[in-house]
Design a protein around this nucleic acid. Structure first.
Length: 170
DNA sequence: CGTCTTTGACCGGCGC
DNA sequence: GCGCCGGTCAAAGACG
């Protein structure tokens, strides 16, 4: 086993070319990931690297329909995508997820799993997909913001990193 | 016994 | 209009 890498794909809004500063991160990342670690074997250490990425193929995520009526009914979807280098799909981020679907993606030879937060009133969804190119890379896409605390009380070092990332945005 | 996973069906959007 | 593709539902089973 090697050191795990956490690739941060931030999706603030449009595919606007953001400055290379890490300070321009989307809001409330720590709400999405209050606690982040790989539970299966404690693989992740403080060697986690965080990258920021804007645009690319993920720019189409959460797009707004051009033919929307009346306009102004644009719901902002907070959507964050990660790439984790791990051998396990399930990353325990402190929340409890219920799997509600699994589909095979045309572009990938591995199926994509759909999860939803089991907390009542919490509509946060999550997708887990494994890249066909690199079997070790797992893409986790979060959608929505958690409005409730986690069950876990212990905070990991990753929390500090996430807080440091979101210091600028409010 | 309660909770979560599994799995096929269903549905809506989009391209041809 | 039709078929593909991606996302969700829901029934039934697995598992503690």
């Amino acid at each position: 086993m090697e050191h795990n890498q956490i690739l941060f794909l931030a999706l603030p809004k449009s595919s606007d070319s953001a400055p290379p500063n890490l300070s321009s991160n989307p809001s409330n990342i720590s709400q999405v990931f209050p606690r982040f670690h790989i539970d299966s074997a404690g693989l992740m250490k403080n060697e986690a690297k965080i990258y920021q990425h804007c645009g690319t193929s993920y720019g189409s995520v959460g797009k707004v329909k051009p033919g929307n009526k009346e306009g102004g009914k644009e719901t902002k979807k907070h959507k964050y995508a990660f790439q984790t280098r791990s051998q396990v799909d399930i990353l325990d981020d402190g929340y409890r997820w219920r799997k509600y679907g699994q589909k095979t993606v045309k572009n990938s030879k591995f199926p994509r799993s759909y999860y939803r937060c089991t907390h009542q009133g919490c509509n946060v969804k999550k997708q887990v997909q494994r890249l066909s190119k690199d079997e070790e890379i797992v893409v986790t896409t979060y959608e929505g913001i958690h409005s409730h605390p986690t069950d876990e009380t212990s905070a990991e070092n990753f929390d500090q990193i996430l807080r440091h990332l979101q210091t600028y945005n409010a």
